[in-house]
Nucleic acid binder design. Structure first.
Lengths: 195, 195, 195, 195
DNA sequence: AATGAATGAGCCTTCATTCAT
DNA sequence: AATGAATGAAGGCTCATTCAT
């Protein structure tokens, strides 16, 4: 097994440390020293590898997105029907790895920061677009396009809203109940459309 | 008629300035000097009146909550039926004054900050509870309690989620489409419950 | 006697401290902390009053220029003949207050920095122009314009060169010998022109 | 023919890179990384070869001096009379290779740095002494020693002063006009001495 | 011979906060 | 009541330098 390069290793460690720091501090207002300390390196090294705080944050957001993306692709691959695709997307967003306090806090923090940072905003746009199109790929076979669009928007809003609530009330809602809530919304709407 | 005290006037000016500053900066990361400057006073005076930055932020959040609360009370007073009460609550959250970019940004910023500040967290709890119970007062007459609870949670999540989306995509969704989305959710569920 | 404002006082103290620091360190490579320390204040205050290091340096250069300008005006006022005007300009540049090690070092340091800082460059342009036109006001009555121009340039170059030599060799040349050298140049040229 | 050692090659490349960096940055305030990068090597290698930044700067100054020295020797060799020796020395200082912006900036930067670095100061002393004695070798046959000493000092000051002016005003004075100015000084004085 | 990895020290700058007036 | 003056603490960033490989 080839040993991964030291640089790759350090970059990953720094990104993980960033997520951890944000998760614990519950805000992007973390210091480079804190992050570097968690990664077991000097803050100078963090600058050496990433250039600056902004770049490190961007890389972290990118990593978060990549994780979500990977999980989503895997989940969709296992979905055999349009209906299953919808559930897959929902499930991924509330999966254990995505719905961890730490991750949820990081997402929200990035949501806010994106309002000021163009690069972050761009990244979140990508995320929004993917979520939307993944949902649409499951919805359009089941209902008229207009209806599907509205529903995709509703589902997305619900997911985001549940993230907020998750962040605010420590521990609640559980991944399970969150999933159930969104699934119920989907189910009701589908039955209505079918009826 | 008693002239309102200078102090009251200054406090209000400082709180307004805080909201404005947060709205423009799109984050709680505003300086006392900036806020004081907008209010036309020295930063020392802001400390004199509020004690510290945290206290000023808390007072501001409280003012935001009071505004929402007042609007909600007024709207509910005009609602004649349970169904109308639900719509009233939704409408208030997407009303022109509440769904302004500035206000939305402030809400989200406070959401995040609340994770670290116990006083802010307490205030947001109150907000959450009020939203929930107001919704419940409209829902319980129309469906079983368990169903109502779940729905209240769903509506609340959707509202929060739409706030996020509003903050991210400048201008969208419109108050109108946001309202329609949530109303559609309610309507569908009610019809299902009735059917 | 009106007490001068605290701000004016502090600004002056900081500028003096800057000259002292540059003079001792013999370079513009001085720290804000060092400067502030010499002035007996915190570095934060230096920023408060001047905005940043660049601004403080610019203000200092401006003060240096103002001193030179004031001395020059006074000396010229006492000069009764064109010839005396020339000597006055030379004398001022090698006067005790201008030819102090400290001041000379500062001038040279600013000369170099001006190559990179547009504001400083602008200030030095002013200095150069004044020196030139002051010399010309003494030279043109005594010789053809072309000759006068060349001589003004020669005198100016000699003055600058003597500053360098003064900076390099601690203590030498004395103000006296420097003056004598330039005066000799002037005298020789004048005699030639007359002859 | 022995291939020149890699080390010699690298050292020369680093010194050239240092001059280039100083010339471009117009100050000694260049980083080892910048220099090393220009030379196509790692900054660690620069340390390996020179020990530290100070040593590299010293070596660079030495190289500059060697260039000037070589040019001077060549020019003096072609001078047949004392008068020609004087002109040769002047000409070299304003020759194309010496009066390049880059080189002029480097000289001035080193002038200043020499005030803090003993080794650099020593090097500049050597330069000053050589310039002086070269001038004297041309002047003493033509006038009394005291007169010659003063003139050598005047010429040297003028040359230095013209370097400053060259550095400040991009492009001016031309080598030609600079030479003419100094030559005119010399000529006037010689005629006076002769007369 | 050459380099990437890593760091400690230092600097500029910002900001909430205090205090005398 | 209100402010200007002043600061301590902290953070981001840079850079010369060292060291193992």
């Amino acid at each position: 097994m080839a040993k991964i390069g030291v640089e790759t290793e350090r970059r990953r460690a720094l990104i993980d440390a960033t997520i951890a720091a944000i998760g614990e501090r519950r805000s992007l207002d973390v210091t480079m020293s804190d992050i570097a300390g968690r990664a077991g390196v000097s803050s100078a090294l963090a600058h050496h590898y990433f250039g600056g705080k902004g770049d490190l944050l961007e890389a972290t957001m990118r990593a978060l997105l990549a994780d979500l993306s990977r999980d989503t692709v895997l989940a969709l691959r296992r979905a055999q029907t349009p209906r299953a695709r919808i559930s897959a997307v929902i499930a991924v967003n509330f999966s254990v790895s995505q719905f961890r306090q730490e991750t949820v806090h990081a997402w929200l923090a990035f949501y806010l920061e994106a309002q000021r940072s163009a690069p972050l905003r761009r990244l979140l746009r990508i995320y929004g677009y993917r979520l939307y199109s993944n949902l649409m790929s499951g919805l359009t076979p089941l209902m008229p396009r207009t209806e599907a669009e509205r529903m995709a928007e509703g589902i997305a809003a619900m997911i985001d809203g549940l993230y907020i609530r998750r962040a605010l009330r420590d521990g609640l809602p559980h991944p399970g109940s969150a999933t159930a809530l969104v699934e119920d919304y989907v189910e009701t709407k589908l039955r209505q459309a079918a009826g």
